[in-house]
Simulated scan of single mutants.
Amino acid sequence: MKAKQILAQQDANHDYEVTTGNAKFLNNAARVLFGSNSSILDSGKVTSVQAISGTGSIHLGALFLSKTAAFNGKKAYVGTPAWGNYVPLFNLVGLEVVTYKHYDASTGKVDFDSVLEATKKADEGSIFVLQGCCHNPSGADFSPSQWEKLAVAMKAKKLFPLFDMAYQGLGASLDEDAYGLRLFANKGFELLACQSFSKNFGLYGERVGVLHAVSEEKDVASKVYERLRCLIRWEFSSSPAYGSRLVDIVLSDDKLRQDWQTELATIQKRLADNRKALHAELVDKRKAQGNWSSILSSNGLFCFLPLNPQQCERLAAEFHIHMLQNGRINVAGLNQSNLGHVASALVKVTGSPSSPRL
């Protein structure tokens, strides 16, 4: 609200923004993602351009890769279950997608053996889509040690990481949620990072996103910038200005930035508290059958409950609790007034052992 008031007082015009986005906004955005004191950013090896939120930045990144000779014939690897847009986004630009198992329903955690096996089977130079935090749809994230092992495995096969950073700050702190990305960047990977401010700023409809490319050399970064500038110009000319101006106002002011980070920490804590409350209501209070550990082992907005499609249908029909038929819930939808109702309904529909679909 404060940023909106400041922007209104500035009486900014409605002219087009620079094709690649306002340089000050892009610098601020990059320092949120890579760290305020990032040596990578100071090296000049990072190219940042504004895109149409997270989806648009992934599309732009995929398009860029498809037009780059080094990726001719390369495939994009996506861990499943996955955000439903990955496959069509890559197929749209002519890149074939290979899927592998990311989530283990029996543990509610990452199936890390399957992830490592995928890196072994992939051809050199293949693209790996990696969600940096708050995995959508499972909430199952890599641990720091798993990120370390994955970096070693991908480096050995010369695999190319494309990071989807849609939920930074909702799993833990801004820095903790960027651990994997910063690790890969500091280990010398060339990579793409797709950043969205839809969730952590609540600017869903303003479509505020940035695509960052990390190159081996500074002169390569300048060529990457020119290529991305052309792709943006040819496809959508420039990105929306209003939302990026709001983000820039907040990130440029120490007080407003601290207020934002405090609010973000409050949101993150609420999500974590909702998980603890639902798990306690089910396991401790109601002695629910089944394994509900996925509630606590996941991060961010989403997690999978151990439900089959029939149980999900019954929840909707009898108790007016609606979710995807694979059992994915949005933890943010829980509150003190509906927690008991949700837990009671879950106990009623899981009276017999469930058969997870995933």
Rank of each mutant, 00 (worst) to 15 (best):
K4S: 13
L7R: 02
Q9H: 11
T19F: 08
T19D: 10
L33M: 11
F34I: 07
F34E: 05
S36P: 02
S38E: 03
I40G: 06
L41Q: 03
L41N: 02
S43D: 07
V49Q: 02
G54L: 02
T55Y: 14
I58C: 08
F64Q: 04
A69R: 12
A69I: 12
A70H: 04
N72E: 15
K74P: 06
A76E: 03
G84M: 11
Y86Q: 05
Y86W: 05
V87D: 14
L89N: 09
F90E: 12
T99P: 01
S106H: 07
D111T: 10
D111Y: 04
D113P: 00
V115K: 04
L116Q: 04
A118D: 02
A118H: 03
K121L: 15
I127C: 04
V129E: 06
V129A: 09
Q131S: 07
P137I: 14
G139A: 05
A140P: 05
S143G: 06
S145E: 15
Q146M: 15
W147R: 08
E148R: 08
K155E: 14
K157R: 12
L159I: 07
P161R: 07
A172T: 13
S173P: 05
L174G: 06
L183I: 09
K187A: 14
G188D: 04
G188T: 06
E190S: 15
A193V: 01
C194R: 01
F197M: 00
N200A: 08
L203Y: 11
L203R: 00
Y204I: 13
E206Y: 04
E206L: 13
R207A: 13
L211I: 06
H212K: 00
V214P: 03
S215W: 00
E216K: 12
K218C: 07
K218D: 12
D219V: 14
E226H: 08
L228H: 00
R229C: 10
L231I: 10
P240V: 11
G243L: 01
L246R: 02
V247A: 01
V250D: 01
S252C: 09
S252K: 02
R257D: 14
R257T: 13
W260A: 07
T262L: 08
E263C: 11
L264H: 00
N274I: 10
R275M: 10
K276A: 15
H279D: 12
A280F: 14
E281H: 09
L282G: 09
W292E: 12
S293Q: 15
C303K: 00
C303N: 05
L305M: 08
L307V: 14
Q310E: 15
C312L: 07
E318S: 12
H320L: 13
I321G: 05
I321L: 14
M323G: 03
Q325F: 13
N326D: 13
V331M: 14
A332G: 08
L334G: 06
S337F: 13
N338K: 01
L339H: 01
A343I: 08
A343H: 02
V347R: 00
P353D: 15
S354L: 06
P356N: 13
